[in-house]
Amino acid sequence: MWEYTKKLKDLFLHPKNVGEIENPDAVGEVGSIICGDALRLTLKVDKETGRIIDAKFQTFGCASAIASSSALTEMIKGRTLDEAIEVTNQDIAEYLGGLPKEKMHCSVMGREALEAAIADYKGEIIPPEEKEKLVCQCFEVTEEKIRRVAIENHLTTVEEITDYTKAGGGCGSCIPRIEEILKDIWHIKMPEMPAVKKKLTNLQKIALIQDVIEKEIRPRLQADGGDIELIDIDGNKVTVAMRAMCVGCPMGGVTMSNIQEKLKELVDENIVVETE
């Protein structure tokens, strides 16, 4: 059970500014039903003063997502766009008397919808997030978002990044990448590189690759109903075939690069993994 403040519960049970403005001057849409929360913000803006006359929201999500959305609309009504853009996710959380740390991503969603709406009003086109720039595939979180939220909220651990952006909260395969981003932002010293690995004979290498696939990779895939079969090893080129649930899985690309990373880490950094 989450510890919600009275203010948050009030706004959840009796949300203000619910709905959709007809012929809005600005629309901001963020999130998706797959990820578990989505927010559609519509604004009426006075063209001369740039003041937000009305703001309404529609939210699919939990109590804190609904309350954060409602809080946002309350906070920005009557402000000019330039004033409104100053509202941070921390301000939204404070307005609610605080959010459980695992729910901070709800306030971030509010802030993002506001940014999207203001960009929409100004006619700026936010380029659609390119798939390859995504750090977290499960919740579609970009590196840019992780960096921005980390800096704005002084986040230094992966766990905090997950609480604020959801990144890393799904399959967890992006956690090393999030660690790297955090190290880069806060200039945390990289650990010493491990000692150079001993050169392996071909037979040793083949045995080691088999061992890593059998002990490290297969059990994880099998836990999600998938499987893999080692087909061939030619120098540093490892050919595998995806089996069971992995066949046709949309996450196949991610899985393949994880397998390659694992083999690079444990066997040889020049290994390239290919599918049959």
Partner: peptide, 14 residues
């Protein structure tokens, strides 16, 4: 469909 479970639970909780 199209509503979130935690929100339903908290409304029921009332």
């Amino acid at each position: 469909n199209y509503v979130e479970g935690e929100a339903i639970l908290l409304r029921l909780d009332e």
